[in-house]
């Protein structure tokens, strides 16, 4: 009889196991190791680093001093140099009214309504841009009718794309923006939503466009023999890259019809996880990419 620990120790002690060649290749490719050159270059790097930090700090100080606002400057020259674009300085002078002023009351009105329908109201007041006479189209009568009548027809009438005026940099710019019907439903479920939130939360779920299988079995039985990506709409500029666990490229293709069958350089690949990177352009012309893992089972 023998103690089990000693039994294992005797069996394991003098054993050596040679790792595969790939391991050394990857160690050689390691970036930390390539950049690391022990003492000499380290010191040089520190010197270079301190020198560059001194340079950068000098430039920053010089920049700050140069751009520091001079309080003794003549106010009349300041207005002249600023021209038409700088509204803040123009606004302080009493001669002209800034034309962006009406935007603020409109925005506050649209937020203050608790009715969620108001946030997606197509009849929001539109302001004709840069009118010198400062005229505002405020369709107040329309607004009240829409808000008081809580019929469902109004919400159904809303089309997919609507024109909403967004104030950007204190200027009213006519900018069409896409509001999905999903967004509208979401908005209706909430109690209070500001108008800005709808514009900044587009729903972009890549799995609605493409189906990525998470496993495939290249054993020749006719079922899931290839890693086939199934799009739900037409895609262009399709690219697909598959890497193995060591990070080496195993497969790449530029068409949806050409799928990976689990063979690398004529040899069936090992069972296990593989990483894919897929890039494509959608119908709307948007470039998208997706990363994930796929399991190869034999």
């Amino acid at each position: 009889m023998k103690e089990i620990g000693a039994f294992f120790r005797d069996n394991f002690e003098a054993i050596t196991a040679n790792p595969p060649q790939e391991v050394w290749e990857i160690i050689k490719m390691n970036k930390d190791l390539q950049n690391f050159n022990y003492k000499k270059k380290r010191n040089r790097r520190i010197k270079m680093g301190s020198f560059s930090t001194v340079l950068i700090s000098i430039t920053i100080v010089a920049f700050v001093l140069y751009n520091h606002p001079n309080p003794k400057q003549n106010p009349s020259t300041a207005i002249n140099t600023s021209g038409n674009q700088d509204f803040d300085t123009v606004g302080t002078s009493s001669s002209s009214k800034p034309f962006f002023e009406p935007s603020e009351p409109i925005l506050s009105k649209s937020i203050s309504y608790n009715d969620p329908l108001s946030t997606c109201n197509p009849l929001l007041p539109t302001v004709s841009e840069a009118t010198s006479t400062m005229e505002l189209e405020l369709p107040s009568s329309h607004k009240t009718t829409v808000l008081t009548s809580s019929e469902e027809q109004n919400s159904e009438e809303l089309s997919r794309t609507e024109k909403v005026n967004i104030p950007i940099n204190n200027q009213l710019v006519d900018q069409p923006c896409q509001v999905k019907t999903d967004d509208l439903q979401r908005v209706e479920n909430r109690d209070e939503v500001s108008s800005e939130e709808i514009l900044t939360e587009p729903i972009q779920d890549i799995t609605n466009l493409v189906f990525f299988p998470n496993a495939f079995t290249p054993n020749g039985d006719g079922l899931n023999d290839c890693f086939s990506i199934l799009p739900k709409e037409q895609l262009t500029n399709f690219e697909c890259y598959i890497y193995n666990r060591q990070g080496l490229l195993v497969f790449s293709s530029r068409s949806l019809q050409q799928n990976w069958d689990g063979i690398v350089k004529g040899i069936p690949a090992e069972q296990g996880q593989y990483v894919y990177l897929v890039k494509f352009t959608t119908k709307e012309g948007k470039r998208m990419q997706h990363k994930g893992t796929v399991l190869l089972i034999r």
């Binding site: 790792p19 595969p20 391991v23 160690i27 390691n30 930390d32 190791l33 690391f36 666990r245």
Partner: peptide, 15 residues
């Protein structure tokens, strides 16, 4: 194998 890579990088960095 993964651990082995990390170990040897560490050995070279701390030699």
């Amino acid at each position: 194998e993964d651990l082995m890579q990390d170990v040897f990088v560490k050995i070279f960095l701390n030699l």
